[in-house]
């Protein structure tokens, strides 16, 4: 490599408008799937031409929990597992804003599992993007509620023996109106899914299977992040609308991806307003919104 190479013309990063460039470099490992997923969200927001002032990102704790800190929108980095109820409060206070929860599998489904199912049950109009890397990465590679059986982690050193969650089935059976799963390899399809999820009225859920090279691949001798991407390439099977009982992920098995659920259902706020109107008629005073002006 020549040190005398011609310097490129200084021009802005294509995602400059959506990323906090003053926080670069980010903390993620080079072969991680998070960069791709964040780019998919940024691209989705750009393509949707949403007023970015009206978007908020809320994250919990973990590698994915750091996403809120890199997105250049109003963004909240909350406690472990609690991004969803924080987002619920924000959404109810500002129903005009698009509230997006971006967090990991351990955060959303283990410690935050109760919030996940109840917020889906209420059909609260938020979007949840769950980056599933099958492991607790930030804390050094412990077993997660998504770790496939026999996969090794630092706290399942002889191989995991617990049944993992099937996240699309969990989301759908809890009440989500939009459910999709893609891998970090499916950049365009993932971007489309995120666009659809953000546009969807109600609780929308996108699971993104993402490589953790530093921990999951290393502890299981699966090669690098690139090898995991190759694995997704060779083993992903697109099955839109499939029976969700069939989308379990086993160790190094086929990964079924696609858009699984896209239905219409009144949202939490629709139900709240309709329920009260039914009882109180014109006397009902719907919440007026916190506009930040007072």
């Amino acid at each position: 490599m020549s040190v005398n190479a011609k310097q490129p013309v200084e021009e802005g990063h294509p995602m400059e408008e959506l990323l906090r460039m003053d926080r670069s470099p980010h903390i993620w490992c080079p072969p991680c799937g998070l960069g791709t997923t964040v780019t998919a969200l940024a691209t989705a927001l750009k393509q949707l031409q949403i007023d970015l002032n009206n978007v908020a990102v809320v994250s919990g704790i973990g590698c994915t929990g750091r996403v809120a800190g890199y997105m250049k929108v109003d963004s909240f980095h909350t406690t472990h597992g609690r991004a969803i109820p924080f987002a619920l409060g924000l959404h109810i206070a500002r129903p005009d804003m698009k509230v997006i929860v971006f967090s990991g599998d351990g955060d959303l489904i283990s410690i935050g599992g109760n919030h996940f199912i109840h917020t889906a049950r209420r059909n609260v109009d938020i979007t949840v993007i769950c980056v599933n890397n099958f492991i607790y990465a930030m804390t050094g590679g412990q077993v997660a509620p998504t770790t496939p059986i026999t996969a090794k982690t630092s706290t399942s050193p002889y191989g995991n023996y617990e049944h993992p969650f099937n996240l699309p089935l969990l989301a759908a059976s809890s009440g989500a109106v939009y459910v999709a799963r893609w891998t970090a390899l499916h950049v365009r399809r993932m971007t489309t899914a995120i666009k659809e999820a953000i546009s969807k009225k109600g609780f929308s859920f996108v699971e993104v299977i993402a490589p953790c090279s530093t921990l999951y691949a290393r502890l299981n001798k699966l090669g690098s992040g690139l090898d995991l991407m190759k694995f997704y390439h060779d083993n992903s099977v697109i099955k839109h609308g499939v029976d969700l009982r069939e989308v379990d992920i086993n160790y190094q098995s086929k990964v079924i991806v696609g858009k699984f659920i896209d239905i219409e259902k009144p949202t939490y706020l629709d139900c709240l307003n309709e329920g009260n109107k039914r009882v109180f008629g014109d006397k009902y005073k719907p919440y007026g919104g916190g506009n930040g002006d007072n």
Binding site: T79, F86, L88, G89, L90, I92, A93, R94, G290
Partner: peptide
């Protein structure tokens, strides 16, 4: 958490 989120929402 919900009251924190809503408080940031201006309420």
């Amino acid at each position: 958490n919900a009251i924190l989120g809503a408080s940031w929402g201006g309420v």
